[in-house]
Amino acid sequence: MTPNATGVDAVIDVVTAVLLIAGALMSLGAAIGLLRFPDLMSRMHAATKPQVLGLFLVLAAIGLQMREWWVWPILAVAWIFQLLTVPVSAHMVGRAGYRTKHLHPELLSTDELEAVVLRAAGQRAAEKAQEAESAMPHTGKARNGGNARNGGNGGNARNGGPSA
């Protein structure tokens, strides 16, 4: 920043200061969200603030202070790189969190994944029952048939599907 700035320099310095402090406040907001939100999913919501908007604000401040046109494409590349990597890692963390049940189901308004998981579980149970039936066709047929019917019923009860 220019010492004893006047005119345009002073205006740019004030804008830069506002951008920098806003970008730092994004980090503070993420930390407060990490401390106060109840489960992993809502903490993930807070954690993306400094990674995207905070980085954008401080990179814009750098671009304003350098005052060279060739800086902006480099800063844009740095920001787009962050924009490409953050959703992928957030997806992986969210998927692992759902699979290991790091969530409070009563806090979710909708759980669209639950129906998919249940349907896949029902299909897998039906396939396993069919395999058990075809693997041992003549030894203990009655028991295998019973297993298959149980598996199929369990799958259908959760599935609601037509494969009775």
Binding site: T16, S27, P50, A61, Q65, A96
Partner: peptide
């Protein structure tokens, strides 16, 4: 996973500090 998420935020804070130094 909470620790992974928090360390991601810590990395973002370090990045913000580096960028503020540059600006």
């Amino acid at each position: 996973l909470d620790r992974v998420l928090a360390s991601d935020v810590l990395l973002a804070i370090l990045g913000a500090a580096l960028a503020i130094d540059m600006a």
